[in-house]
Amino acid sequence: MEETVPHELLIEPNRPALHYWRDAWRYRELFYFLVWRDILVRYKQTVVGVSWSVLRPLLTMLAFTLVFGLLAKLPSDGTPYPLLVFAAMLPWNFFANALSEGSNSLIGNANLLTKIYFPRIIIPASTLVVSLIDFAISMAIMAGMMLWYGYLPGWRIVTLPLFLALAMLAVAGCALWCAALNVRYRDFRFLVPFLLQFGLYVSPVGFASSMVPEKWRLIYSFNPMVGVIDGFRWALLTGKTEIYWPGLLVSTALSAALLLSGLWYFRKTERVLADVI
């Protein structure tokens, strides 16, 4: 359809951003194909691919239940401890996967970037979508576990997509920053796995965030995943978990700021991308 429209293209230094977003829309087909490729490649070795995304969260959940629930005997706000942990692992694993895949996405597709033009934002965006597949698998496990415990979610489950959207907002900003920094600084890729490991312990994954003393809770919410994890627990579990609204607002505002600044830095890096990668 588009090819019948004769279009004229002007190439000069510092092209305006308006064209960029129009181009990004024009290249949506390539976006679908990159998502399709990554999913296809990932699940080609079905046994390894799928079982890995089932096993990993299950094992982590077991470890946390043992350490925090059985040994340290932390309170679970009235839900079975494994469910409490797994409800938090859903967004956290999504965040961790999407961030590590996203931050490596530009480097991993360097051969494309130096040979073909397309708005580069397509690459990290497609890894984000691929990570949603793993998230869906984890959701199925969660459903299985809830059945096993005979645990029924309340009406609040309808708000889950909102919190998923919040998780995507948080990870999109971080991934854009990391993907661009990864290109600029070759040792940055060692930092991301470390930050993720660290983040797993400072985020309320293994314990309920009610454990955090009241006066620190607002500060604690500066970790954007705190609001998301609390939201997931609130939406999925019927326990007495309450949403800490000021914290959620802080988390959301911070995520939005990360996304905007991430977009800015990504665009800035994109201009010199083919020259430095």
Binding site: P6, I11, L113, D275
Partner: peptide, 23 residues
């Protein structure tokens, strides 16, 4: 010309659909 990298100065005006085969 394939828009993989930006020029430092000057401009290019292209009329029509471009396909580039650099590899």
């Amino acid at each position: 010309l394939s828009r993989i990298t930006e020029p430092t100065s000057g401009s290019v005006r292209i009329k029509g659909r471009v396909a580039s085969l650099l590899e």
